[in-house]
Simulated scan of single mutants.
Amino acid sequence: MFDRFVKTRSPEGTTGPRSFGIGLSLVREIITAAGGSVGVERSGPRGTVMKITLPLALAQP
């Protein structure tokens, strides 16, 4: 899901290939560059929930 230009077969009952493009791969690159992480928390028929964790930024004096 986080790889660039991934294409898979469509789920049963749908037509055409599914593609994920580059969006999630860019999200992962940005989040990990900031010291965080991103992943799939859950996925089902109503959609997918992503979990993004970022480190706490402390105020500079």
Rank of each mutant, 00 (worst) to 15 (best):
Pro45Leu: 07
Leu58His: 14
Pro11Glu: 06
Pro11Met: 03
Glu12Cys: 06
Phe20Val: 03
Leu24Gly: 10
Arg4Phe: 07
Phe2Glu: 01
Gly35Leu: 05
Ser25Tyr: 14
Leu56Trp: 05
Gly21Pro: 00
Ala33Gly: 13
Lys7Arg: 12
Phe5Trp: 11
Leu58Gln: 12
Leu58Trp: 05
Ala33Asn: 13
Ile22Lys: 15
Gly16Tyr: 00
Gly44Leu: 02
Val27Met: 15
Ala34Phe: 05
Thr14Gly: 02
Gly36Thr: 05
Gly44Ala: 03
Leu24Gln: 11
Gly47Pro: 08
Gly47Leu: 04
Gly13Ser: 08
Val40Glu: 08
Pro55Val: 03
Ala34Trp: 06
Met1Ala: 12
Lys7Tyr: 08
Gly16Asp: 01
Ser37Tyr: 03
Leu26Lys: 15
Thr15Gln: 12
Leu56Ser: 07
Arg4Pro: 05
Ile30Met: 10
Val6Asn: 04
Leu24His: 09
Leu54Glu: 11
Asp3Met: 05
Ser37Met: 01
Pro17Gln: 06
Thr48Glu: 01
Arg42Glu: 08
Ser10Asn: 11
Val38Gln: 01
Ser37Cys: 04
Leu56Tyr: 03
Glu41Met: 04
Glu12Phe: 12
Arg18Tyr: 06
Pro11Phe: 04
Ser43Glu: 10
Met50Trp: 15
Ser37Pro: 01
Ala33Glu: 14
Gly35His: 03
Pro11Asn: 07
Gly23Val: 08
Pro11His: 04
Ala34Met: 10
Glu12Gln: 14
Gln60Ser: 14
Pro17Arg: 03
Pro61Arg: 10
Thr8Ile: 15
Gly21Leu: 07
Leu24Trp: 12
Ala57Ser: 11
Ala34Val: 05
Lys7Ala: 12
Ser10Ala: 15
Val40Phe: 04
Lys7Ser: 11
Phe20Gln: 07
Glu29Asn: 11
Thr48Trp: 00
Lys51Pro: 00
Ala57Asp: 07
Ser25Val: 01
Leu24Asn: 11
Phe20Leu: 10
Glu41His: 09
Arg42Trp: 03
Phe2Lys: 02
Ser37Ile: 01
Glu12His: 13
Phe20Pro: 00
Gly35Arg: 02
Val40Gly: 05
